[in-house]
């Protein structure tokens, strides 16, 4: 059936976007058990960096995207070094860390709004109507294919990193027991700093791709973060496969949900899914 195919495609597209945000979030959460609200604003930083270089300053596409990803990663790493690490050292409670991340989120978002105004912006010069492709009886645009390929590559890349590299094994050890990781000789502060870099860079990439698809706004971070968090919890927190699973599940539930219910209920459906999981299976689909 025509509409079903399209809904499946839409579910995958939305799922891929949520997975993108959830991947970075879960990586950081897995290593630090820290709910980083500021994660959302790194997506905005990625998008706005590309906006600045590509759209405003005429720098070509690839370097602009690289700059965006790098800047988001650096911002994440700096926020760990300057704010979260000192709080961790002082054994700050999770409430304090959460509040600090919220404060950071708000501050960075305000800076972006001041620098670039509150308005919605697009990353392409003319409001580009994307090249579309027919898949079975549905339609998908070019940027969505890019997003899906990116998510698949990132997931594979993260898998390889976590399981085949020494760094990845250190991350896994830190996720299990940070103190023992230190005892056996792992410089956990440094490793966590790199984890923040990678996770935030992924968020930045997400913001860039979403920017090319729809557009950017200084406040885009919160909405993305919420969906990313729902995807993480539903899939299984701290687990990269959980990100993929949760992202896809959320994407499908939202898109099939509005098939029968009106579009205004989209957010309610997403949060309904979250609450159901929190009540009945808080460890998520793939959680232990």
């Amino acid at each position: 059936m025509d509409i079903l195919t399209q809904l499946v495609i839409n579910g995958i597209i939305a799922g891929a976007i949520y997975t993108l945000i959830a991947l970075g979030f879960n990586l950081i959460y897995g290593a630090t058990k820290f709910f980083n609200i500021a994660h959302g604003v790194f997506a905005a930083i990625g998008g706005y960096t590309v906006f600045f270089f590509f759209k405003l300053s005429g720098v070509s596409l690839v370097p602009s995207i690289l700059a965006g990803v790098l800047l988001a990663g650096i911002a994440g790493m700096l926020s760990d070094r300057l704010i979260f690490l000192p709080l961790r050292r002082k054994r700050g409670s999770s409430v304090i860390m959460l509040v600090a991340s919220l404060g950071l989120f708000t501050a960075l978002q305000s800076v972006i709004a001041i620098m670039f105004s509150n308005r919605f912006q697009t990353l392409t010069d003319i409001f580009n109507i994307q090249k579309t492709y027919q898949i079975f009886s549905g339609v998908i645009t070019q940027i969505h294919i890019v997003i899906i390929i990116t998510v698949i590559s990132l997931t594979i890349g993260l898998f390889l990193m976590l399981n085949r590299t020494k760094f990845g094994k250190a991350v896994k050890a830190i996720s299990d027991d940070e103190e023992v990781a230190r005892i056996i000789g792992i410089d956990t502060d440094r490793v966590i700093g790199y984890v923040f870099f990678i996770g935030s860079a992924i968020a930045g990439l997400g913001g860039i791709l979403i920017g090319f698809d729809t557009g950017i706004m200084p406040t885009m971070g919160m909405g993305l973060l919420l969906k990313g968090v729902i995807a993480s919890i539903v899939g299984g927190v701290g687990n990269i496969y959980g990100s993929v699973c949760g992202g896809l599940l959320l994407g499908f539930v939202e898109n099939f949900g509005v098939w029968k219910i009106s579009g205004e209920w989209k957010d309610a459906i997403a949060f309904g899914l979250l609450i159901i999981f929190l009540l009945f299976r808080p460890q998520g689909v793939l959680g232990k």
Binding site: I3, Q6, L7, N10, G215, N255, V258, G263
Partner: peptide, 20 residues
Amino acid sequence: DQTFKKGEKDFRSLIARAKP
């Protein structure tokens, strides 16, 4: 009649419903 909240960015499934 497809309704949505301000702030929505993904209308694709609403559009899929409207198309037929």
